[in-house]
Design a protein around this nucleic acid. Structure first.
Lengths: 220, 220
DNA sequence: TTGCTTATTGGTCGCACACTCAATAGTGTC
DNA sequence: GACACTATTGAGTGTGCGACCAATAAGCAA
């Protein structure tokens, strides 16, 4: 009288199964937080036994680190693709800032806060956080360097300017779990403002619509 | 053959005991993190039984929220005292920034990251975080307003400028659990730079030594 | 088809946690 | 000195966690 039907075993290649586990873990991490990554939770997600997760990840900390890396990497690709299509660096930068404003970005902010806190106790995760920080900084610095090279804007050190922008973005992101409503434009636009200032661009030059090719209008 | 001597009960007034519990919890929260606040941990700290903690805090979440509020409030008083002594607002502001640079500030940064993350799941803590955010912003805004009134510097809206400064401080603080070494001055001085810019002060005017009365020297 | 490799199961173990509660013993009051 | 109040103990309950492991069966190769 077992209520659950005896599931037929589905045997996959280690690579496929491992990827499946990591993907599921990344999705759970993004939606529910890194502390929701338990053997039982992921096993339930994939309809397998908890022991199977242990088989691929002898310690759950490894899975947590891997899941964060995957999730953060995917989000970076969504926000600031590595292989940019045509268009000016300025336009790509403006598009990046536009993407950091929707509520979807809140989930990423929460994940970063989560990881930054949890990395206090988890060395493996701390390493992954450092690596992702480098990836984000590098990706942004690359774009800044390209724009400077093309003469679209100026920057002495793309790496430093990238960090300055990311610090402001991180500063705004820490409020992702609190309120974020009724925030004056001077605050919510701080990241864009910082970028425009540091790059010697006119006010509004990085506002989404303006950089798409039209003339710069007043900031909204 | 009980190894622990039968401790004599020490009976305290509810107020004293409660304060003792909160203080111990705040210390543990600051040193080891908010998730270390367990009934057992605090009971051990005070050499009492876990049940006693439950007696004063029916749910742990209440204690966590209370401990965070106490710790954050105390740290704010240390960084930016409410009743400032003599001296210009500029000097007090410079002293504040100086205090945000030592390694002691890292502990506070960690606590804030911890609380901001944990408040995702704990409504009571979320409320306390919001209240403390208001307290920090209010305290800083008050100082900015006073300096502006005295003509030391300019600001349209002390509240907005305070948040701008705090956003940058928060952005720098998120790295408290990662590395913070070999960070160029352009980054580590971002908070001071932001304040000087927004307040219309000369570069270096808020560097500790300079504001104490001596003439502004080059930033270190 | 037979047999081997190993992915997967299914259950167990020990631990730490929050929470509950009747029994106990300080402490002030009458 | 006896009593009432209640702060405090001490033991227990149930849950969820990571980790472990022998047994099983899927799929590949001979």
């Amino acid at each position: 009288m077992s209520s659950s039907v005896q599931r037929k075993r589905i045997r996959k290649t280690p690579e496929a199964r491992r990827a499946e586990i990591v993907d599921a873990a990344a999705a759970v991490a993004l939606a529910e937080g890194l502390e929701s990554l338990t053997l039982r939770r992921i096993a339930e997600e994939l309809a397998v036994q908890p022991g199977l997760i242990s088989h691929y990840f002898p310690s759950v900390e490894e899975l947590v680190a891997e899941a964060f890396g995957t999730a953060a990497g995917a989000e970076l690709d969504g926000l600031l693709p590595a292989d940019r299509g045509p268009g000016t660096a300025t336009a790509h930068l403006a598009a990046f800032f536009a993407r950091t404003e929707g509520p979807a970005y809140d989930a990423i902010s929460r994940l970063w806060i989560n990881a930054r806190h949890l990395s206090r106790y988890r060395p493996l995760l701390r390493d992954r956080v450092a690596r992702q920080e480098g990836a984000w900084r590098g990706r942004l610095a690359e774009l800044l360097g390209e724009g400077a090279e093309r003469g679209e804007f100026r920057t002495d050190d793309p790496g430093v300017t990238a960090v300055q922008i990311l610090v402001v973005l991180d500063g705004l992101a820490v409020y992702a779990n609190t309120d974020t409503t009724d925030r004056p434009a001077a605050i919510s636009r701080m990241a864009v403002t910082t970028a425009e200032r540091e790059l010697g661009l006119a006010h509004g030059a990085l506002t989404s619509g303006a950089a798409a090719g039209r003339q710069a209008g007043p900031a909204t």
